[in-house]
Design a protein around this nucleic acid. Sequence first.
DNA 1: GTCGTAGTTCGACAGTCACCGTACTACGCC
DNA 2: GGCGTAGTACGGTGACTGTCGAACTACGAC
Lengths: 107, 107
Amino acid sequence: MAKHGTLPPLYYPAQEEITVEGVLRALADPVRLAIVRQLAASDREISCSGLTVPVTKSTITHHLSILRQAGVVAGRQEGTTRFNSLRRTDLDTLFPGLLDGVLAAPR
Amino acid sequence: MAKHGTLPPLYYPAQEEITVEGVLRALADPVRLAIVRQLAASDREISCSGLTVPVTKSTITHHLSILRQAGVVAGRQEGTTRFNSLRRTDLDTLFPGLLDGVLAAPR
DNA sequence: GTCGTAGTTCGACAGTCACCGTACTACGCC
DNA sequence: GGCGTAGTACGGTGACTGTCGAACTACGAC
């Protein structure tokens, strides 16, 4: 077989596959909302360990996979680190105002 | 005691008590999203039995109570009928763009 | 090679949730 | 009064979900 060190082929929905309900479900959790807020606030990519949420590593992985499958975040692998970023343009195109409305909320 | 025919004192959150997470949770369900869409589309009050969703009466009551407690819908009693409406101005004030973003989405 | 770090995967478990049927209250009409 | 309709309350059940720890892979540095 080919090289052994291939990245796991993570599934990312195409823009037209993203659904409102999936996005709402993904955002309807305090931990995931905190992750999205941090990604939006820094406006930079953040690694898993760079996120400050009160759960363990495996739970962060779980939440990120949900956000990824919903089309909310994208990830870029670099060595052993995965840098996560918001798919802001995709979301703004599909659901204009949604993300801003969520992020602008004080709570 | 007073008159017997008092309405049940339903709890409605004040505008400043509405949270994004609560609203997102409330919207993150296909049945409730359908209810909200119908309320937004008709731009009129709709009774429980006027909603077309594929669940029984008791389940509709359950979903409406969730939407009510989240601050998404309001209800006006008239006889035995409860007319439900979207709290659009409250939501637009707190989370500008959120509701429109959700409703504008094709799916 | 060895070690440490970054993430993922895999059960497992507790809590929540959507759903239903039934029983009940409240109102309007005959 | 009795009956039908609108909606709520309650109890139960199956499914999903958020959480963890432990085991595992992958990469980089020494």
